[in-house]
Design a binder for these strands. Structure first.
Length: 880
RNA sequence: GGGCGCGUAGCUCAGUGGGAGAGCGCUCGCUUCACACGCGAGAGGUCGCAGGUUCGAAACCCGCCGCGCCCA
């Protein structure tokens, strides 16, 4: 396999080189749009992204992508998480680990069904009209039409996903896994059917789980309603924002310690409009300072009342049905919508003079995360999953570090949530999804992965919560429950990268299911990445119009309205966007920064040109070979040392999921060391065989280093660097490649840099033309004079008698400028420098004469301070 | 109501006990033989406010002000 792949790659590469190499010298800029499509194609053709299922999960590296909604489109979150995961995958592939990034999409029950229903409505029909089988067909068609979009977009991102094995949560084998899990948990008694309070979403006509509910602020009227005591001795006043639910009231509750009402406990009131007699009960839940301190109890339509009702054994009545209309509990209101009923109830109460007050009231109420409609809490017959037994081991694996959550702070949220977990409502009144494998016939119930024998059975019409199937993602995608080679090679996976908002919804559930069904944690590291907000600090969202399309950043196009400056994005290219997003990655939310994307684009272009410079100058036939040994030029040893340092830093940052520093560190190396200094330092040298080989080596290593972050430009350049073979994406680093740090070279070149910067500053202050060479005497540079004089544009002279116009003391050396600076100007600058030095000396002196500091500060700190003082004094002396 | 986090240069963010940093923006200079998406030199900050701990605080502790998120 490996052989075949390489052969194919080599053939293509050869063809490609012919086409492109000639033109590289004329390409002053890296043009992503021209380069990216063919590079993606080469990667895909190579088969590199589809590793054979060999070896063990310990040796291999794998990540399961959080499955995007099948009909979704790439948004900023996908692009960020895609960049993160691809960087990890490419990095570990370079380390020689067989790496698989598992690809697939989610059927996304409610979201997809809603879209298809919307289309049906446009066509003048509905799902009810065409029936369930036809609706399912239409939804599959919809998936055929739009399902490929996001996959293609991931390709554009350079994501090295295994496109050859694309999974879907409704694939036949995946469905088998889902049904098996349901049946197994049912047989364990952990899945059960019950009448229970659920979050009813009128928008989707289905129950939804607690996690799919969001609280929003609402402005309502708080009605104070008088309920007369049955014995006629008075009344109690209850406060409610939902007077229509009073029709299902079963009690009035007061706090047991509330002295105002203690005498009433045990008495009854008569429910207005209905005439039912309601007991007055005592419950600690009631807040004495809210409203009148009397609470109407409606177990059928309020979660808290439901709990109170169960505590007190109260009946559960339903005034509102699943259709969002009033039931015939009170026939007068039957069939009205909730809003109509509220109006009617209030009018009727008014007629009876029962309303004592109306106050404006602002509070938070539940809304459906999916449909955006206000949740109607009601009691419904649903399937639930018991979570306690599943949660305990999932807490344990995080506590004992078998699953590590990054950043650490998120572990606590995870544990807290699992410790307080409640039963999970898993049935949904939808058609698109995994239909619950339960059949009924009369009083009989059958649960199984295959339909029951015999006639007269009807299947439960509900489907499972989408997250039920997602919870199996890391192993069901690899063929579980069958014992497949894929499962053996890639499960458990290594990293799960995701945003904070689905830590409970998805991550915790995968851990629970993974432990229960495979006996192993589904991944070892969970990276919880930042959420990128719009530039104005608001959430990025389509409905707010604050979204930014990653592809518009890549290709260029009009800036969305959140950018107040308007105009258009330039084409930043995929490398720029990937770099920018990684640079924005953090442990907390960040605002989108176009500057970071631009920085990435600049880096790609810089690397392109640096490589071009090298290729334009090296000897023909040169092959990469580092200049080794102490006799090699100091700058050559220096760049190898800096390269080793950059590699070590990059590795450490990837290993600790610090993507921002990994990316920015790369930038600093390429700009701040390779280009600003090293390439400038060698410009005066002859490009002989040794230097050519060395340069090719440095370029090659830099491309390897940068590849996981900016894969396109590095792949493009790799192909043009002599001595490279095959794809950079397939390149595996040998163990301990290259030399390590060289302290002496680092020290020497640091002196060169400091000296050059000091001289440049003087030149600039003196108004010297940048191109002009100034005569100067250099002292104490220990053989580094040629490097300094070239970069600082000095002509060294040996004339000890010449009177300098300025003396620049720096880094233990002195530069005597013999011309170029006006003596008055020089005097002023020297005076300024003197003052700065004196101030610093004073500071250090004060510190060292403070007994507290000398006695209590650690010895190395005191020592460093002494050395500093000495250095400063020497510089001052040189100045005078 | 409970919890978590944030406030550092004009903007976006690093910096978690020992001389305030980066990118962008800004100023000045430069067609220096890879790159003007470039190069060089600069300006710019009582590190939200007020106490405390310490020889020493942007960092640690307490309080306040402002902002965000999660849970109930």
């Amino acid at each position: 396999m490996q052989h075949r792949v390489h052969a194919v790659v080599r053939r293509r590469a050869a063809l490609h080189t012919l086409r492109c190499f000639m033109s590289l010298k004329d390409r002053k800029r890296f043009e992503p749009s021209e380069v990216e499509p063919r590079i993606v194609q080469r990667w895909l053709d190579s088969g590199l992204f589809h590793p054979d299922p060999e070896g063990t999960a310990q040796e291999n590296f794998s990540i399961a992508i959080p499955p995007p909604n099948v009909t979704g489109a790439l948004h900023m979150g996908h692009a960020l998480n895609g960049s993160i995961q691809d960087t990890l995958i490419r990095y570990h592939r370079q380390r020689g680990r067989r790496s698989k990034w598992i690809l697939g999409t989610d059927h996304a029950g409610i979201a997809t069904q809603t879209q298809v229903e919307k289309r049906l409505k446009e066509q003048g029909t509905s799902r009810e009209e065409i029936g369930r089988p036809a609706f399912i067909d239409r939804t599959w068609e919809w998936r055929e039409e739009f399902g490929g979009t996001i996959i293609e977009q991931f390709k554009r991102l350079g994501a090295s996903l295994d496109y050859e094995e694309e999974r879907f949560t409704l694939d036949e084998r995946y469905v088998e896994a889902v049904l098996k899990v349901f049946v197994d948990l049912y047989n364990k008694g952990w899945i059960y059917r019950d009448n229970y309070m659920v979050n009813w979403d009128p928008g989707s006509g289905s129950a939804i789980s607690d996690l799919e509910v969001e609280e929003r602020e609402a402005h309502d009227t708080l009605f104070h309603i008088a309920y007369p005591l049955t014995d006629g001795s008075g009344e109690v006043v209850v406060a409610t924002v939902r007077p229509e639910t009073m029709l299902a009231d079963v009690a009035v509750a007061v706090h047991p310690d509330d002295e105002r009402y203690q005498h009433l406990i045990g008495q009854t009131v008569t429910l207005p409009l209905v005439g039912r007699e309601l007991p007055i009960i005592a419950d600690e839940y009631v807040k004495t300072d809210f409203g009148t301190g009397c609470l109407k109890i409606t177990p059928g339509h309020d979660p808290n009342d439901f709990e109170i009702g169960r505590r007190h054994g109260l009946p559960e009545l339903s005034a509102i049905g699943e259709d969002g209309r009033m039931t015939d509990l009170v026939p007068r209101y039957a069939g009205l919508t909730v809003a109509e009923a509220q109006e009617a109830v209030v009018a009727d109460l008014d007629a009876e003079h029962r309303i004592r007050a109306r106050d404006p009231y602002t509070h938070t109420v539940p809304f459906s995360h999916r449909s955006g409609q206000r949740i109607e809490p009601l009691i419904s017959l649903q399937w639930f999953m018991k979570m306690d037994e599943l949660a305990a081991p999932a807490i344990q694996v995080v506590r004992d570090g078998r699953v590590r959550i990054h950043p650490e702070s998120q572990s606590r949220r995870y544990v807290d949530w699992l410790e307080n977990i409640r039963p999970w409502c898993i049935s949904r009144q939808l058609w698109w999804g995994h239909q619950i494998p339960v059949w009924y016939r009369g009083d009989e119930t059958y649960v199984g992965t295959e339909p029951p024998e015999g006639d007269g059975w009807t299947r439960d019409p509900d489907v499972l919560d989408t997250w039920f199937s997602s919870a199996l993602w890391p192993f069901a995608t690899l063929g579980w429950p069958a014992d497949t080679p894929e499962l053996r090679a890639f499960y458990p996976t290594d990293v799960l990268s995701t945003a904070r908002d689905i830590l409970f919804l998805w991550v915790a559930r995968m851990v629970m299911m993974g432990l229960e069904f495979t006996g192993e944690v589904p991944f070892e590291d969970v990276y919880v990445h930042s959420v990128i907000q719009a530039p104005d600090g608001r959430r990025m969202s389509k409905s707010l119009g604050t979204g930014i399309d990653p592809l518009t950043l890549i290709d260029g196009g009009p800036r969305p309205p959140v950018f107040t400056q308007g105009g258009t994005f330039p084409s930043y290219g995929t490398d720029g966007v990937r770099f920018g997003l990684l640079a924005m990655a953090s442990t907390q939310d960040v605002r989108f920064s176009e500057e970071k994307v631009a920085q990435g684009q600049a880096l790609a272009n810089k690397l392109f040109n640096a490589t071009r410079f090298v290729l334009l100058n090296v000897q023909d036939g040169a092959a990469p070979a580092p200049a080794a040994g102490p006799e090699a030029p100091v700058e050559d040893r220096w760049i190898l040392s800096r390269l080793a340092s950059a590699k070590a830093d990059f590795a450490a940052r990837i290993d600790t999921f610090d993507f921002s520093k990994a990316a920015l560190g790369l930038y600093d190396f390429v700009y701040g060391e390779l280009c600003d200094w090293y390439l400038e330092l060698i410009k005066g040298r002859e490009f002989d065989a040794a230097l050519s080989g060395h340069l090719l080596h440095v370029v090659r290593e830099t491309l390897v280093l940068a590849h996981p972050v900016i894969p396109f430009v590095t792949e493009e350049l790799w192909e043009n660097v002599p001595g490279t073979e095959g794809l950079l994406a397939a390149y595996v680093e040998g163990p301990g490649d290259g030399p390590g740090r060289d302290e002496a070279a680092e020290r020497d070149v640091a002196r060169v840099i400091a000296t050059v910067q000091a001289v440049r500053s003087w030149r600039d202050a003196g108004g010297v033309k940048p191109g002009a060479f100034l005569r100067a005497r250099l002292d104490g540079l220990d053989g580094l004079e040629p490097l300094v004089s070239r970069l600082a544009r000095l002509t060294p002279v040996d004339d000890g008698a010449a009177e300098p116009v300025a003396v620049i003391p720096v880094a233990g050396a002195e530069v005597f400028l013999l011309e170029g600076v006006d003596p008055a100007e020089a005097a002023a600058k020297i005076e300024a420098a003197r003052r700065t030095l004196l101030a610093e000396i004073q500071r250090a002196d004060a510190k060292l004469s403070n007994p507290g500091f000398v006695d209590k500060a650690p010895a190395p700190v005191v020592e460093a301070e002494r050395a500093k003082l000495e250095r400063l004094r020497a510089e001052l002396e040189a100045l005078e």
